[in-house]
Simulated scan of single mutants.
Amino acid sequence: MAVWNPQGVTIPDTPAPQLTLNNGLKIPILGLGTWQAKPGEVGRAVEDALDIGYRHLDCALLYDNEAEIGEAIKKKIAQGVITRRDLFITSKLPPAANDPASVRGTVEISLKALKIQYIDLYLIHCPVSIRKEEWQKLESAERFAKPAHPAQYFNDVDPLTVWKEMENLVDDGLVKSIGLSNFSIPQIQRILDHGRIKPANIQVECHAHFPQDDIWAFCRKNSIILSAYAPIGSPARFGSAGSPGDLLKEPQLTVIGKKHRKTPAQVLLRWLIERDIVALPKSTHQNRLRENFEIFDFKLSQEEMQIINSLQEHGRRLFDFEMWKDAPNYPF
Results as ranks from 00 to 15, higher is better:
W4M: 08
N5H: 12
V9L: 13
V9D: 15
I11F: 04
T20I: 13
L21C: 08
N23M: 09
G24A: 05
L25Y: 14
K26D: 05
P39M: 03
G40M: 14
G43Q: 08
L50W: 06
H56A: 08
H56D: 06
E68M: 01
K74C: 06
K76N: 14
A78L: 13
Q79W: 14
Q79S: 15
Q79R: 15
G80M: 07
G80K: 12
I82F: 11
R84W: 02
R85V: 00
I89P: 05
S91H: 05
P95F: 05
A96R: 10
N98Y: 00
A101D: 15
H125Y: 03
V128A: 03
R131E: 02
E139R: 14
E139D: 11
A141R: 12
R143I: 09
F144H: 12
A145G: 14
P150A: 10
A151H: 09
T161P: 07
E167M: 08
L169A: 11
V175S: 06
V175N: 04
S177K: 12
I178S: 00
G179S: 07
Q189T: 15
N201H: 10
E205L: 12
H207V: 05
F210H: 09
P211N: 03
W216S: 11
F218D: 07
N222E: 04
S223P: 04
S227K: 02
A228S: 12
Y229L: 07
Y229D: 09
A230C: 15
A230E: 11
S240V: 10
A241C: 09
A241Y: 07
L247W: 05
L248R: 05
E250F: 01
L253V: 00
T254A: 14
H260F: 09
K262V: 02
P264G: 01
P264D: 01
L268M: 13
L272P: 00
I273W: 06
V278G: 01
A279E: 01
L280H: 02
L280R: 01
R290K: 13
F293M: 11
F298V: 09
N309C: 08
S310K: 14
Q312S: 15
R317V: 10
F319S: 00
F319W: 12
D320P: 06
F321D: 00
E322K: 14
M323F: 15
M323E: 15
D326K: 02
A327S: 12
N329W: 14
